[in-house]
Amino acid sequence: MEEYGTVASVKLITDRETRRSKGFAFVEMPDDAEAANAIKELNGAEYVGRPMVVKEALPKK
């Protein structure tokens, strides 16, 4: 993500019991334009043989 702009924080989501990654994370970028560009460029890109889903996180309803 740093390739596309400043990263303020990253929260890697892990399983409570095994402490292994669940395969997703939340990344905060302070600049909205940089974040939008990162989403545009990375959504659907392949990482470790799997396509990534990169989108804006929305609050639960």
Rank of each mutant, 00 (worst) to 15 (best):
M1K: 05
M1E: 07
E2D: 09
E3P: 00
E3N: 10
E3A: 14
E3T: 09
E3W: 00
Y4Q: 09
G5R: 08
G5N: 09
G5F: 08
T6H: 10
T6S: 11
T6A: 12
V7T: 09
V7G: 09
S9E: 10
V10R: 12
K11D: 13
K11M: 10
L12I: 11
L12W: 03
L12Q: 08
I13F: 08
I13C: 12
T14M: 12
T14K: 15
D15E: 14
D15L: 11
D15R: 09
R16P: 14
R16Q: 15
R16K: 15
E17T: 15
T18R: 07
T18F: 05
T18I: 09
T18A: 09
R19C: 13
R19V: 11
R19Q: 15
R20C: 06
R20W: 03
R20F: 08
S21I: 06
S21Q: 06
S21D: 08
K22I: 13
K22Q: 15
G23L: 10
F24T: 09
A25Q: 06
V27C: 00
E28L: 04
E28H: 05
M29G: 05
M29C: 04
P30R: 04
D31Q: 03
D31S: 05
D32G: 01
D32P: 12
A33V: 07
E34C: 09
A35G: 11
A35V: 04
A35L: 08
A35N: 02
N37D: 12
N37H: 12
I39H: 02
K40G: 06
N43R: 04
N43F: 04
N43Y: 04
A45T: 15
E46P: 01
E46G: 02
E46T: 13
Y47V: 12
Y47P: 01
V48N: 14
V48K: 14
G49L: 04
R50L: 12
M52Q: 02
M52T: 04
M52Y: 01
V54K: 01
V54Q: 01
V54Y: 00
K55L: 07
K55W: 01
E56M: 03
E56K: 07
E56L: 05
E56F: 01
A57I: 00
A57P: 00
L58A: 05
L58G: 00
P59E: 07
P59A: 10
K60D: 11
K60T: 13
K61L: 13
K61H: 12
K61E: 14
